[in-house]
């Protein structure tokens, strides 16, 4: 795919953070979890208060990269996610900056009580690295995928919720979370994903980024769906003459409501896209704000109240119409 830029759109602030994503085939592909592990290790070098906890999936989450460099600051608690978050809270209460690692499904649902009562309620400085989120652990199936974690994390007061879009943003999210004082939930992907952000694009917690300006509709996405939204925006322009804007809403909470209002005013239509159930995630967050303050027609794309299943990652996304053609068609139908 190679489509000319829509010249009358003008430059977009957030776009400066992007690589030349329109050359889709040439985009580098990087493993988000490898990037995460490397970021953790780098963080360990910069900040000796950072400690890492793991629940026996260190070779999967790549927290193991930290353990090689800092064995004394690495605690593998075994297959015991509840205890891991409890220990993390105790460490944070004594001034440490713990990064606790497990799959998103276990971070929120197995360990939901310590996440709520010892981390969110206390406001302690714990970073919960929720790996293998969305459908990214595709072959393992519904038990290991996580399409409910945002709904849970977002409902917990005090908890900041981040969703980086690619490997570069994963690194930036880790650094931003460490610099931020308070509990942070970072939703991470297992996958090797196309890199759309420049390496040092930063991660402005609490601010969405306009990656493409639109006139007819704004696509608001997070995680891997940002890339899919950018692709869909190009297809919409080429095949339907629909000018779709794209926002990367990389912080689900606190939500950038000023940007939401701006997008709603500018384009009058909003479509949210998330690798998550449409109940309680990004779409719900956006709808909750808009319905009260600036109601515009909306569509929520994501999993429609179903569990995932095993399969190839991209095939699964296609199955749930979360690929570029699926998104394009849904948006075109909506704008018609």
């Amino acid at each position: 795919m190679n489509i000319n830029m829509d010249m009358d759109m003008g430059p977009v602030a957030g776009e400066k953070s992007l690589l030349n994503y329109r050359d889709w085939a040439a985009l580098p592909r990087k493993s988000c979890r490898e990037a995460y592990g490397a970021a953790l290790r780098r963080l360990g070098e910069i900040n000796d208060q950072v400690v890492v906890l793991e629940a026996d999936v260190g070779n999967s989450t790549k927290s193991v990269l930290f353990s090689e460099a800092f064995p004394d600051r690495y605690f593998n608690v075994g297959i015991a996610e509840n205890n891991m978050l409890g220990v993390a809270a105790g460490l944070a209460a004594c001034g440490k900056i713990p990064f606790a690692n497990t799959f998103a499904v276990f971070a929120t649902m197995r360990a939901g009580d310590p996440l709520r009562s010892l981390i969110a309620y206390t406001g302690l400085n714990v970073k919960v690295a929720a790996s293998y989120a969305g459908l990214s652990d595709s072959y393992d199936g519904a038990t290991h995928q996580s399409v409910e974690d945002l709904a849970i994390a977002r409902a917990l007061p005090n908890l900041t919720v981040l969703v980086p879009a690619d490997a570069h943003q994963t690194v930036q999210a880790v650094m931003a979370a460490a610099a931020y004082r308070g509990p942070v939930f970072i939703r991470l992907s297992r996958a090797v994903l196309p890199v759309i952000y420049k390496e040092e694009a930063g991660f402005p917690i609490g601010r969405g980024r306009v990656l493409r300006r639109g006139a007819d509709v704004t696509l608001i996405a997070c995680g891997y769906m940002v890339y899919k939204a950018l692709q869909a925006a190009e297809m919409l322009a080429a095949d339907y003459s629909i000018k779709a804007g794209v926002i990367d809403m990389s912080t689900i909470k606190p939500l950038d409501t000023a940007l939401l209002r701006e997008a709603a005013e500018e384009t009058g239509r909003i479509v949210t896209i998330e690798e998550h159930s449409i109940h309680g995630g990004l779409g719900s967050a956006v709808a909750e704000y808009l319905i009260q303050h600036h109601p515009v027609p909306m569509r929520l794309l994501g999993l429609p109240d179903v569990f995932g299943e095993s399969g190839d990652y991209e095939a699964l996304l296609t199955h749930f119409r979360l690929d570029a053609p699926g998104i394009t068609k849904a948006v075109a139908d909506f704008c018609r």
Binding site: V51, F75, G86, V87, A88, A89, G90, A92, A93, K96
Partner: peptide, 9 residues
């Protein structure tokens, strides 16, 4: 668990 975290700290 929280107590263990404090002990480790």
């Amino acid at each position: 668990s929280a107590g263990l975290g404090m002990a480790l700290a």
